[in-house]
Simulated assay, not measured.
Amino acid sequence: MMSRALVLQTDFGLSDGAVNAMYGVAFSVDATLSIFNLTHDIPPFNIWEASYRLFQTVSYWPEETVFVSVVDPGVGSDRKSVVAKTMAGQYIVTPDNGTLSHVERNVGIQEVREIDENVNRLPKSGASHTFHGRDVYAYTAARLASGKISFEEVGPLQPVDSIVTLCCNDAVVKDGEITGIIDILDIQFGNLWSNISRELFETQGISYGEMVEVEIKHGKRKVYLNQMAYGRSFADTRIGQPLVYVNSLDNMAIAINQGSFAKAYNIGTGSNWTIKIRKYNP
């Protein structure tokens, strides 16, 4: 059997040997594995962002690709270690702490198995309880990706509805106003990516070049309220001006042309960051 691709995501960074140790464990299982990085720059302990980055990426990889996601503030606790199989046939090896939330909602999960650490754990690592990314997840994922174990041999089947999921309200329209959340940042450029779909936005009859009013709140505190144009691309507005556009996942996003909207207004992400968009009527 040809080895499947193995894709790693962590909040470890690359300034020490943690990620390299995971590579070493994987190659010790099968030296022919092809290993790729999703990212190792998830903000420390930020399960929400880990969840989103998986959703952003998983569907573009072939069936049977094996992902490892380790953002694990509960390491050493009684949280479960699982492997989830998506509706598209990829596998995700991760702590069951909410990391599967966006994939479960947007892609779908077929089956979940709890990792049996009596079988699927790096030999001679039993005394270590703080580096499951190396000892459990990289080892199990490499065995799965290389065909040394089947999905059924990961461990016992778990109900899909038993996995931990983070609170995330769907975007809605009411009285001509669309309400959603700031799901994630386009980090390199500081753009805000919402969970408002293009289809939902288009129900309001807003055309390219028209003005909309955008309101952003953090909890009950209003952080931003202003008008901006709906643009096809950044070329549709002047440098330094804000705009609403459709991002690469077909959702609505907010940006400043050649600037960082997130830095300009100190915007964060998650279910307590709400965004409202309505057609502007002066």
Rank of each mutant, 00 (worst) to 15 (best):
39 T>D: 04
55 F>G: 01
260 S>Q: 06
127 A>R: 13
249 L>C: 00
153 E>P: 02
253 A>S: 12
89 G>C: 10
150 S>D: 15
179 T>Q: 07
262 A>G: 08
182 I>V: 15
245 Y>D: 03
54 L>M: 13
47 I>A: 02
251 N>A: 05
125 S>I: 11
105 R>P: 02
111 E>Y: 13
278 R>M: 09
109 I>C: 10
154 V>G: 03
135 D>W: 05
179 T>A: 02
65 T>S: 11
126 G>H: 11
139 Y>L: 13
19 V>E: 05
209 G>R: 08
192 L>G: 01
244 V>M: 01
154 V>A: 01
157 L>H: 11
193 W>P: 05
87 M>I: 10
35 I>G: 03
103 V>Q: 07
254 I>A: 04
149 I>A: 00
117 E>K: 14
69 S>N: 15
37 N>I: 10
35 I>Y: 06
152 E>F: 00
197 S>N: 06
6 L>E: 14
138 A>Y: 13
121 R>A: 04
101 S>H: 03
179 T>R: 12
234 F>T: 11
34 S>G: 13
117 E>C: 07
90 Q>Y: 06
187 I>F: 13
100 L>D: 10
117 E>I: 15
59 S>V: 00
200 L>V: 05
192 L>E: 02
220 K>M: 08
60 Y>R: 14
26 A>S: 15
205 G>W: 09
122 L>H: 12
112 V>Y: 04
231 G>I: 00
182 I>E: 03
11 D>E: 08
158 Q>W: 13
149 I>R: 00
146 S>D: 01
254 I>L: 15
97 N>S: 05
157 L>P: 08
255 A>K: 00
129 H>A: 12
219 G>N: 06
240 G>N: 02
66 V>M: 13
23 Y>Q: 09
4 R>K: 15
222 K>Q: 08
24 G>Q: 04
154 V>F: 05
121 R>H: 06
158 Q>S: 10
281 N>R: 13
89 G>S: 10
103 V>T: 14
1 M>D: 11
150 S>Y: 10
271 S>K: 08
25 V>R: 07
206 I>V: 14
188 Q>T: 12
50 A>W: 05
238 R>F: 06
101 S>D: 06
104 E>I: 10
226 N>C: 08
130 T>Q: 07
7 V>C: 15
118 N>A: 11
202 E>I: 04
145 A>M: 05
13 G>Y: 09
267 I>S: 07
63 E>T: 09
26 A>W: 08
78 D>V: 09
192 L>Q: 01
163 I>G: 08
82 V>Q: 00
186 D>I: 09
128 S>N: 11
268 G>N: 02
98 G>F: 01
49 E>F: 06
153 E>S: 11
211 M>A: 02
44 P>G: 07
122 L>W: 10
3 S>R: 05
186 D>E: 15
182 I>F: 05
157 L>T: 13
112 V>N: 01
5 A>D: 12
197 S>P: 08
47 I>N: 01
13 G>A: 10
89 G>H: 09
109 I>V: 15
177 E>N: 03
226 N>I: 08
207 S>W: 01
45 F>A: 11
282 P>I: 12
191 N>K: 02
